[in-house]
Nucleic acid binder design. Sequence first.
DNA 1: CATGAATGAGGATTCATTCAT
DNA 2: AATGAATGAATCCTCATTCAT
Lengths: 212, 212, 212, 212
Amino acid sequence: MMTPRLSVQRKEQLESERKAQILRAALTVFARKGFRGATIAEIAKKAGVSEGTIYNYFRNKEDLLLSLPREILAPPLAAHFSPEKEAESPQNFLEKVLMASLEQFTANVDLIRVLLASVPVMDEAAREEYLRRTVLFVSDFLEKYFQKEIARGTYRSLHPSVLARTFFGMFFVFFVTQEILLGKRTVPLTYEEIAKEAVDLFLHGALASKAN
Amino acid sequence: MMTPRLSVQRKEQLESERKAQILRAALTVFARKGFRGATIAEIAKKAGVSEGTIYNYFRNKEDLLLSLPREILAPPLAAHFSPEKEAESPQNFLEKVLMASLEQFTANVDLIRVLLASVPVMDEAAREEYLRRTVLFVSDFLEKYFQKEIARGTYRSLHPSVLARTFFGMFFVFFVTQEILLGKRTVPLTYEEIAKEAVDLFLHGALASKAN
Amino acid sequence: MMTPRLSVQRKEQLESERKAQILRAALTVFARKGFRGATIAEIAKKAGVSEGTIYNYFRNKEDLLLSLPREILAPPLAAHFSPEKEAESPQNFLEKVLMASLEQFTANVDLIRVLLASVPVMDEAAREEYLRRTVLFVSDFLEKYFQKEIARGTYRSLHPSVLARTFFGMFFVFFVTQEILLGKRTVPLTYEEIAKEAVDLFLHGALASKAN
Amino acid sequence: MMTPRLSVQRKEQLESERKAQILRAALTVFARKGFRGATIAEIAKKAGVSEGTIYNYFRNKEDLLLSLPREILAPPLAAHFSPEKEAESPQNFLEKVLMASLEQFTANVDLIRVLLASVPVMDEAAREEYLRRTVLFVSDFLEKYFQKEIARGTYRSLHPSVLARTFFGMFFVFFVTQEILLGKRTVPLTYEEIAKEAVDLFLHGALASKAN
DNA sequence: CATGAATGAGGATTCATTCAT
DNA sequence: AATGAATGAATCCTCATTCAT
């Protein structure tokens, strides 16, 4: 009785892979059709499994949605936004943050699409969890940076939260407008060029009358 | 034989009122449940009409969604963002724009919610129409303003589109994060204070080392 | 607005008829397939309505089951077992009760089938309600009768509850065994003959040695 | 080459034990959820085996149901109701039969529950088999007894079948009502007291006017 | 025009059964 | 022989839409 053919470890790995496979399919379909518009049948087909199999790994459709940020987004985000070598020039540091964010966002356009569509409809707890793992993750990272640097006299003494979100917003809105809402580029600049200009703007302001 | 009880004009007015009444209900429900999650029954109940009546004024559920920006948002927006007295100081002008936007956004949180959730799922044409009447409306207005003022030497010679969306984004992200995503205020500042700081930041930059 | 074409009364009558029509179909199918084995599709077909219509009148499948005794059985039962002319001879009275019960049971074989199959699986509250409207209804009626008659010296001083259920059981088992369990008659006597013998037995006992 | 580890006999015994273990689990779950409501998964869990294993011992779910009376109930029943020492006084004998039945019923409440729920839905053959091994088993035993005793002049010359089922029903209805339908005792008497009263009633009748 | 009952297609979910390991 | 993941048919229920009144 009870003869495990596979080691527990191997089994867990297989299970984890299967979950990821299903979640990737779910993400694609959610992004394309919205949560309600997505059907389990379509997700199953795209994942290459039967409908029933999905329910062996997730409690229900909503569980798929709620598992997305935890299983898909968390690892790369954590890797990117760790409090390390911030000892660079502001321009360099902020540009790097923007480009890293961009990379993440681009790799997860679908997830952001899902987030914008689904978060407002979620209940309190799910919403918190979802945001903490995505938008707020980057925002908090920046806030801490600004706090430290304001203390060091690098930045003007403004509210760190305002600095963080303002900086984040300058760029994020570009991204969302083009990639999520419009679905196409409307400004004839690369993201790298935009990032450079945005950081410059953020650091030195828009006014020409600096000399005065 | 049958004399018309109501003049054609009066009739049209009544019809228009009825449409607005239904659309307001639809907006509320869409915002709360998402497009797919909303039911005609609930919209009908909230509008105080029967389900069948809705189909006398709108072709189908999707028509309700697509009619929202045209009928609900357009008039007030047009009133606010007309190319008039821009001859103020940049700080004053931009603060006014932000506060006016804020007013519009606050009055239409529901519509933005619907927009973020539904636009990505819409087809090309509907998406264009939707955005042109909302986000892009303000953005274009700002772009024209920056174009003119750059020419006049007020602002540095950056891409007007970048300036417009960057400026817009600085503030909009606050709004969306707090009102739409989180559903509550997390920064201990009023929007007026935030607007002031954001404009200051936008004009003069974040760096402390200006003096040098 | 709001022009009711039908009087409220007429509407209620129509609704009531429709409910009855659906319940009759449900009863038949439940009896034949059991509660879980019955499908809404089959009930709908037998009732001559669409599946959706059923949900306009009943919350869900379980509501159909729970509505059965209240809507189908209650009226005729109440009519039959009212505390009236009990001033007959015991033999006459008890025979009449048995024959009346028989009539009810025969007319509601299906309901008893459903009751025996479903009641044990129901939750406390539903079970109480169900039994109070069926088995216990007759049983309580008999109990009150025996209580009164024992006081008058007609019957031996046994526990009225025991008398009631014992008497009821003598006959009921015939009915259930034949009509519900076996599905066919196995005793070569009519129910009328059985009732006569059962009452005789109940009143005078089975022993032959009375004379002694 | 391969020497059998277990003797054929031992093997059969193990198989038989495993079957019994699964059937006991099935009985419990069927009783609690009904046949359709029971899931193989739950039965497997309760039996401490995997779902697949069940199919090594039983063809399918229905086979579990049909195997119940043969494997679970038959042996003890046969032991109890054998045609032996009937040479006791009627009161003694009948009381013993009732108490023995009671013991069997109490030990098999679940089986009776399943029987009442499932038998009406079974096909002809299965129903016969099921009943022959349960209710009719006792009933036939009694019928033979009454037949013999009527010939000996102990009982009045009534139909033996009527006597048997009547006697059986007097008590059985108590049991079913309390244990199966209501799920609780509602009469303040022990089953032993009820059995005594029921036998007394059966033998001597309910009428007080015996003396006359 | 307004109503709301009826419709039935569509979709989430369950679960008996199979079969590779 | 035992396992339990995978399967997909089956089924309850929802809801946009229609249409007779």
